[in-house]
Design a protein around this nucleic acid. Structure first.
Lengths: 235, 235
DNA sequence: CCAATGCCTTGATTTCGGTCAAAGCCCTTG
DNA sequence: CAAGGGCTTTGACCGAAATCAAGGCATTGG
């Protein structure tokens, strides 16, 4: 898992008047004249954890920037088995251009704030501004790289390696912080890694008893031996 | 797995003089004037199965269109465990724009023919032609959709469902053909599905003894009961 | 304060798929 | 034709993770 805070950092920060938030999402790709128009049609939303943002096979009529919080993208089989196929952080763009029907579910994993734009406006701007498409291409390529790394984890790693792979990139190497809040419940981590809750729980206790991590309040994790943890993430 | 023959079909067919092949790959996105230039710098290559096209952590100096055959994209762990993370068919674009180092391996799974372009030329054209970027965005979004479906298979399906999921979309619904050549060896199918060769083999024999498929010469598969097969692919 | 609820942990048992080992089949090559 | 090698199949066994089942520990609300 990767907490992206640096993507799009080249974008121009913009005040979306209607959502009253400075952010660097999709707006940042546009030139100031266009931005004024976009600002007027955008709207800010605050969303509780657990709320469904986009339903499977549902028509999508808007795109959003994630301003804060974590959005999980999931896919389910008919019998209820579920797999998380993506996590989106600020300032990611949320939505699938060029397709009216969504094939995935998007749900707030934590409290989430979004800045939304009507579908038609974004699509018009995409036609008019190659910069916007360029930015979108870059995000999509990054998501594809991420998905492919993840496929190795899902297909070829053991439960221990999977859990370590989940914890490992969650630590931000930039801030050098070894302590953080898990953005997901055990159930979500299980759906992320293709495991059961019980296996996730057991692996975390094992890391705890082996002295590699400390866990407080079920959510706050401190990694005490990063090198040894990295060794378990499967190179 | 999806055999894509229809992507980019909106592209203008172009004669790449130097590779002497009419194809609809990346060229199709460009206007005729640009195409003349591109044709002059492109070159056609025919590649034997098993040959490595792009090595992990290798600098990539060219992009290609797949003209025929199947290219497998793989990622490996340090101890040799391997996962196929993508398959590319004609007329897919092969290469990762905006990144000099490749994080994946590309290898010819069958005999492959490619039309290659120097990296610099494509990047220049990408800056000049929004059409090219648009086409690339669309392919990337499709690959991302594919990767996410695949993640459900890797993370949540049983061995039987995985093998059925592999066979199912291989049948082209357009041609209604229930008979086809497997483009991959058992080992490749295993690396595709996150299984071992033995498990793949056992699942195929089971489908055979259950009368759902017939296999000739190890490679030629005929699906005799499509509906029952679909039921095993996990909805 | 005491249920009640949601989330997490722990234990006992089962099972699916992996591992190890041996053979079969097909195609090439001498 | 025989030998060899690559790929595939099959069998016996094992083990990692799933399943089934309790129980713990917070927070919430009557």
């Amino acid at each position: 898992m990767t907490v992206r805070q640096d993507v799009h950092s080249a974008g121009i920060p913009v005040l979306c008047q209607s959502c009253e938030a400075r952010h660097r999402g999709v707006c940042g790709a546009l030139d100031p004249d266009q931005l004024v128009g976009l600002a007027k049609i955008s709207s800010k939303h605050t969303i509780e954890p657990g709320v469904e943002l986009i339903g499977d096979a549902e028509t999508v009529d808007s795109y959003s920037n994630v301003l804060s919080g974590v959005v999980k993208l999931t896919k389910s089989l008919s019998d209820g088995r579920q797999q998380i196929v993506g996590l989106q952080f600020a300032p990611d763009f949320l939505g699938r251009p060029f397709k009216v029907e969504s094939a995935i579910n998007a749900e707030a994993a934590t409290a989430v704030s979004l800045c939304s734009f009507p579908r038609a406006s974004i699509e018009r701007m995409m036609r008019e501004s190659p910069e916007l498409e360029h930015r979108l291409l870059k995000q999509t390529l990054n998501e594809l790289d991420e998905a492919r790394d993840w496929m190795v984890t899902l297909g070829r790693k053991t439960a221990a390696e999977k859990v370590a792979s989940f914890l490992d990139p969650t630590l931000d190497p930039a801030t050098n912080a070894t302590s953080f809040e898990l953005p997901l419940t055990r159930a979500d981590i299980a759906d992320f890694l293709g495991l059961t809750i019980e296996t996730v729980s057991r692996q975390l206790t094992r890391l705890r008893t082996d002295g590699l991590i400390r866990i407080e309040n079920n959510r706050h994790v401190t990694v005490t031996s990063l090198t040894r943890l990295a060794g378990r993430s499967g190179a």
